[in-house]
Amino acid sequence: MSAWYHIADPITRSWGVDYPWVLALALLALLPFLANVFNRQGIPTTGLIPPDPISRALGIALKLAGALAILALVVGLAGLHRREQTVIREGTGAHLVLLLDRSSSMDNNFADRAPSGDEQSKSSAAKHLLGEFVKGRPHDRIGVAAFSTSPMPVLPLTDHHQVVQAAIDAIDRPGLAFTNVGRGLALALSAFADDTAEASRAILLVSDGAALIDRRVQDALRDAVARTPVHLYWLFLRSRGAKSIFEVPPPGEDTPQANPERHLHLFLQSLGVPYRAFEATSPQAVGQAIAEINRQETRPLTYVERIPRRDLARAAFSVAAASIFLILLAKCAERPLRRHHRPATAPANRTAVINNLRDDRRAA
């Protein structure tokens, strides 16, 4: 699933500083071109010096490093940052609520007994496969709700999937006693109450059973679905030997008390919204059902995301430190020019000089 985005704010407005007056100090960046930190040494003439482009380029590079160090320090002190931005993302996906059964029966395996050895419980199998399901839908907004004796709001609709993964990782904790799926569905529908985006909405119910839904709860669910149409999916984790929700019992035995799962299936069919149920009796079947749901919920999706402010002062100080380090290395490598002097003559013998003077006078 690919997605593209654009920034609603112009690029020129995406950068800012906390202390604009500090930017006046940027004029100090001219100092490396007006002064020199290295020792100046005079020479008689430059005409006899051969061209040395490497030294010239090195000198210019050191001046630029000095100017860059000053500029980086100035913008760092000014509090350079990237402002909060509004991003419009487009891709394929949906707004999806995962409604998870947290009753104690989910702690059993598909043979409806405590798992042993390498066996997985129903909740562990659902945890692994739902985690992969979320990873494969990076552009969805996903919420999480749970239910057992009472409904439990876990996470509102969000596009921060790390939080969603954390919520899914908690579904294999020990469950509670009962399965109040009616109030769980009401909670999942309420997650879309403030959702005004034009996106596909879906509820994925993951449960291994059902209980009777009170008539008043049924009426409330019908009203909620009429106000907020959604796609419904039920991943029924059926224990081996349990009755199928698609199997029609003999006459007289098809009652809500005897077959609550089948009658939940019939009730969801009667809501007048797109609905599909999947039966799974093994972790492999759960994976196949989730893959099918993944294929069906791939419609165009547009949503707005706010990217928070990002401070860049630390990055500016790092650039300044690197530039100063280069100049310091060059300073440490500096060596003075050697002065070449004629060798000093040996001092004349004073006695010989005096004797020569005397001889000259006598001759005169």
Rank of each mutant, 00 (worst) to 15 (best):
W234F: 04
R201W: 02
G175Q: 03
V230G: 03
H161K: 10
L185W: 12
R215E: 14
G175D: 04
L205H: 12
L232G: 01
A224Q: 05
R183I: 00
S200Q: 12
A186C: 02
A220N: 12
D194N: 13
L221C: 04
V181S: 08
V181T: 05
P174G: 07
R216K: 13
D208I: 00
A197K: 12
L221R: 05
L205M: 08
A193D: 08
V225N: 04
D172Q: 11
A202G: 09
D169R: 09
R173Q: 13
R216M: 08
R222T: 02
A166Y: 14
P174H: 03
S207C: 05
H161T: 04
A193T: 01
Q162H: 15
V164S: 04
T228E: 05
A170C: 14
L185C: 01
A210Q: 07
L204F: 10
R201T: 00
H160N: 12
G182V: 03
A167D: 10
Q162C: 01
F178R: 15
G182D: 07
E198L: 08
E198A: 12
R216L: 06
L221Y: 11
A166D: 15
Y233H: 12
A226I: 01
R201H: 10
R173E: 11
A191V: 07
R201E: 05
F192R: 01
R201L: 00
T179W: 12
V217C: 10
A170E: 13
R216I: 04
L185T: 06
I203G: 05
N180D: 13
